[in-house]
């Protein structure tokens, strides 16, 4: 009962400030430009006599995959900020006064942000599929919108975005400092992880480890992304459900450690 109340409360928290739509707006613009731009490049290559790099049937999902492959940083940020702003503005005091059982509050945050992440996923897919499909159709490539495989991809993408927001919650409890959390998210997702993924592909044994990097796991879950396409599709990758489990495990471990440390600390 109190968990339902707490979820309602957390939902009001994330919808009653401007953060969600500012992040969503940037995400939609970013994802839309990437998907539309790459759609135009592939469409142009396809009509070029030098020959297409990829078969037409693989292009749509690759382009729609921008929703997660570049959009995933936004639910992570949103999840992390939902936690760190409580520390920053000392609003944990009224939160814990209204719901003294702190585990309930954190569980409610995970549930709420998981759903909000899926909501970000809907917007990101609208951007990537809207821009991508329009451009592809313009070049005469079938956007595959009626293909069941496309809709299975959509479902897996929503799950990935939801899990990324949950990872953000975990990160926020691990690193309650708002500035530090933002720096870690941006540095890791935009710089450290891409380098690690590139580097891990050099040898077989490092590739085995590299597939457990969160970004790789996310791509495995979604099934199609610009990274996997760039590595020629020959690199090792987890099954889609394994990728999902890796993301869920990262979120769970981070949140549990955060709960045991910062979340249970004295609030003053």
């Amino acid at each position: 009962m109190s968990l339902v109340h707490a979820v309602r409360s957390e939902t009001t928290k994330i919808t009653s400030t401007r953060l969600w739509w500012v992040l969503a707006l940037i995400m939609v613009g970013y994802v839309g430009i990437c998907a539309g731009g790459l759609g135009a490049i592939f469409g142009g290559l396809g009509t070029n006599t030098n020959g297409p790099v990829l078969p037409d049937a693989q292009i749509p999902l690759l382009i729609y995959g921008f929703a997660t492959s570049v959009g995933y940083v936004f639910p992570v940020l949103f999840g992390a900020l939902a936690v760190t702003s409580e520390f920053r503005f000392q609003s944990l005091t009224p939160t814990f006064l209204a719901t003294p059982r702190r585990g309930v509050v954190l569980a409610a945050k995970l549930i709420t942000l998981f759903l909000a992440g899926a909501g970000f996923g809907v917007l990101a897919l609208l951007a990537s599929m809207g821009a991508g499909a329009a451009v592809l159709a313009g070049f005469g490539i079938d956007p595959l919108l009626s293909d069941p495989a496309t809709w299975a991809f959509v479902g897996r993408s929503l799950l990935a975005m939801a899990l990324w927001a949950a990872i953000g919650v975990g990160l926020g409890t691990l690193v309650p400092s708002q500035v530090a959390a933002i720096v870690i998210v941006l540095a890791f997702t935009q710089f450290v992880e891409p380098l690690l993924r590139l580097g891990s592909g050099i040898t077989d044994w490092s590739a085995q480890i590299g597939q457990f990097l969160p970004g790789s796991a996310s791509d495995a879950l979604v099934g199609s992304s610009i990274y996997t396409a760039m590595s020629g599709g020959g690199g090792v990758a987890l099954e889609w459900w394994q990728g999902g489990l890796v993301l869920a495990a990262i979120a769970a471990v981070a949140t549990l450690i955060g709960f045991a440390t910062s979340w249970r600390r004295d609030v003053s």
């Binding site: 400030t17 503005f89 009224p94 006064l97 719901t99």
Partner: peptide, 27 residues
């Protein structure tokens, strides 16, 4: 009912929503 010294408000939230957050949590 408790009010503690620290200004525990998210500055970007309206007063009504600030209170609604905790009213909902308490049912």
């Amino acid at each position: 009912g408790a009010s503690l010294e620290a200004a525990s408000f998210h500055p970007g939230r309206s007063a009504r929503n600030h209170l609604a957050v905790y009213a909902q949590a308490a049912g």
